[in-house]
Design a protein around this nucleic acid. Structure first.
Lengths: 223, 223
DNA sequence: CCGCGAAGGTTGCGGCAGCATTACGGGGAA
DNA sequence: TTCCCCGTAATGCTGCCGCAACCTTCGCGG
């Protein structure tokens, strides 16, 4: 899962990113609405966390803009101002939920989950490929119903591939699934993960293969 | 197991929390319906105990509100008014059970368990792993059918792991299972519990292992 | 059919974040 | 009081993972 966090307090932003990471969530962070808008066009986020009070101005103005651009990603508004009236304000312009500061990360998680549960979003619980069963939400993998554990990054790669099994996943999409843009990589780290993952799958007799499509990306299919 | 208690008499609330704690239950407590509503969004409770007569007004009004928000957590209504007619009233708006004050904690526990056993909730009664049998509902653990005592926190960790045996449990999920929102921890207390629990399981020859997945969480499996 | 460049695959290494363990001491229960 | 739980912190260690060097495969053009 991947979130975009639009927040100008670096301290809060860092704490939040770290906490979300514990939930297996990759977080991109920016404090500028323009950057944020670009990021929504480049990436397919599962949800957006939006602060209202930003150096660029009122965060809410961001919502109509992205909606007009066709982005339907759920938006959760974060703010210190938590009056009922303002709550309505946010929801009226197209926010999906509203969260007053300070809040617990658990609360945020619950709201993210709630928002993702809504009919529009397609949160699949479990995907079967070959002899494997992959649950990308809980980050579980099993082969022939015995658990199979993987390092974090390889797990994220596999989950991203499984979500679109038999379909090609762009290289950039995979990178996005595993890294946030602060952790930019200057090498073939992704290739390395793929390689190690392949070996692990092979050794375990997973009955799946990660197939490369030159210049485009990868796909996961049965052997 | 984790409950939300909505009750305005501090004395009763404290006594109840303490009593439930002895049963290994983590309890969050509030006396305001608004707070309670927020809490249901923050946490995934196993059940909610709801007083009818509250400073905010009639407790029953709370039920449709949370149900509309998509929360399916079982609700047990506590009240001094225990007339049959009022009982129907509570159940009609979506309560799962009804308990007249005063009551024995044992009775409350029995009702909580009963409510959790219902088909909708997926509370398994008993889980077998290795040479152990774990009942996360009664918080009983036995090794080779002789009872096995554990300290409270370690018991909660083990129960949380057992409920998802052979599947990874996120670190954050474990933290939520063991601590309520007042008890924030600032150290590696969870790691310490895991370590001590491992040693105990080892010494007892439980035939199970708690396995770590770096950067993700833990899982319980047979050795 | 062959050559060549670019994309992908593989692998060892080193740094370091995350985990394991343990001793210590406060505090609560019997 | 005594015992044990359990939070804290210090210490050591493990193995993930980014990196880079080197090798293999692919596809195109001649």
């Amino acid at each position: 899962m991947r979130l975009l966090l639009i927040e100008d307090e670096p301290e809060l932003a860092n704490a939040l990113s770290a906490a979300l990471k514990k939930h297996g969530i990759v977080t991109d962070h920016t404090m500028h609405l323009d950057d944020a808008f670009e990021l929504t066009r480049q990436n397919d986020y599962d949800a957006i966390l939006l602060d209202r009070r930003l150096p660029d101005g009122e965060g809410l103005t961001f919502i109509p803009k992205v909606r007009r651009a066709g982005t339907e990603t759920p938006i959760i508004v974060l703010t210190a101002r938590n009056e009922p009236l303002e709550r309505v304000e946010g929801l009226d312009v197209g926010a999906d939920d509203y969260l007053g500061k300070p809040f617990l990360v658990e609360e945020l998680m619950a709201r993210v989950r709630a928002v993702l549960r809504r009919p529009s979003s397609l949160a699949e619980s479990s995907i079967a490929v070959g002899r494997m069963v992959i649950d990308p939400l809980h980050l579980n993998v099993a082969i022939a119903s015995t658990p199979f554990d993987l390092p974090r990054r390889e797990l994220l790669v596999l989950a991203a591939l499984a979500k679109r099994k038999d379909k090609t996943v762009l290289r950039s999409t995979l990178e996005a699934a595993v890294y946030n843009y602060e952790e930019e990589i200057q090498s073939n780290a992704l290739d390395a993960h793929i390689s190690r993952l392949r070996r692990r799958l092979q050794d375990a007799g997973a009955g799946v293969a990660i197939h490369n499509i030159r210049g485009v990306g990868y796909l996961l299919r049965e052997e």
